[in-house]
């Protein structure tokens, strides 16, 4: 090795050699992620567009024109599917609204007000994550039954909001801390009440955090299975995830291709939502010390 050539990297190889190895490893890991993550989505998609008789009989890898069809999606027009989708949308929106409103107010309180045991209070919130939904779900079932929330969408919204809340509150808390207090003080000097200053000055600046919290709540509510299964026990009025499983179990006429069509239809909204909001999402998650 000549003097002018820089010494090798951490593995004692030349820089070129290390770069090559690094690139190769990167490709391999990308391939693994694609295989594990994207392959199922691809499989769902291609089956959803293939005629259901073909799906039952042979293994296909691509819906070529002779077996391509949109016919599988007629299953979505079934009244029961309609109910499932409607319920899922209502629960998701309800959860988002609840989570955003509560976390904004709680986050503001944590960021701006002094009260005893503030830090501990915030930490206790995180304990909620120690339990799996099924552990919380069973007592909730009994409680909801006795206070009449069992089988209602409100009941499910409350349960799902509680699950999203710790993260959302922490996010808002840390995000609001990054907004200079002088902004609010300027509003007070201008004559705004505390509430008005919060509404006019703090909330508009929290937009990235609001979107991040909303996305998080949406993903949780949209994909929730356990709580919906437990808290919406009636097959007619449940959400999509448990509904589709029960439909499968009831052994009616529901070919695999139809299942795939429903799955695809229900996967698309969160996918699009996340894709178009990703810049906000990143900004929201960028808060330091979170």
């Amino acid at each position: 090795m000549s003097q002018s050539e820089p010494p090798g990297g951490i593995f004692g190889l030349s820089y070129d050699g290390e770069t090559r190895i690094f690139e190769t490893l990167k490709l391999i890991s990308t391939a693994i992620i694609v295989l594990v993550g994207a392959w199922p989505i691809y499989w769902v998609t291609q089956l959803a567009f293939t005629e259901y008789e073909t799906v039952e009989d042979v293994v296909t890898v691509f819906p070529t024109p002779d077996i391509f069809t949109l016919g599988n999606f007629v299953v979505l027009t079934q009244p029961r599917m309609y109910t499932y989708i409607f319920n899922t949308v209502v629960v998701a929106i309800g959860t988002i609204v609840t989570v955003v409103l509560v976390s904004l107010i709680a986050g503001y309180g944590l960021a701006r007000l002094e009260f005893p045991q503030k830090e501990n209070f915030a930490r206790v919130l995180l304990i909620g994550y120690l339990f799996s939904p099924i552990v919380i779900g069973i007592p909730l079932y009994q409680i909801w039954r006795s206070i009449g929330l069992l089988g209602t969408r409100i009941g499910l919204i409350i349960a799902l909001s509680a699950i999203s809340m710790p993260f959302a509150v922490w996010l808002m808390w840390k995000y609001i801390m990054t907004i200079p207090e002088a902004h609010e003080e300027a509003a007070w000097v201008d004559g705004a009440s505390r509430w008005r200053g919060f509404r006019d000055v703090v909330v508009p600046q929290c937009r990235p955090a609001i979107i991040a919290a909303a996305l998080f709540a949406f993903a949780l509510a949209w994909n929730d299975f356990t709580f919906a299964q437990i808290l919406l026990p009636q097959t007619d009025t449940t959400t999509f995830a448990p509904g589709i499983l029960r439909a499968m179990g009831q052994a009616q006429f529901l070919p695999d291709a139809y299942l795939m069509a429903i799955s695809l239809a229900m996967t698309l909204p969160p996918l699009l939502f996340a894709y178009f909001m990703q810049s906000y999402l990143l900004k929201g998650f960028q808060v330091r010390a979170l």
């Binding site: 200079p180 002088a182 300027a186 509003a187 004559g191 008005r196 600046q205």
Partner: peptide, 25 residues
């Protein structure tokens, strides 16, 4: 009226809205 060290204009409002905020309230 108070002028702050870090100026503290409302970053999401235009200059016009910044100046008019007190009057609006």
């Amino acid at each position: 009226a108070l002028l702050f060290q870090d100026i503290a204009l409302y970053p999401h409002m235009s200059v016009q809205e910044n100046m008019a905020y007190g009057l609006k309230i």
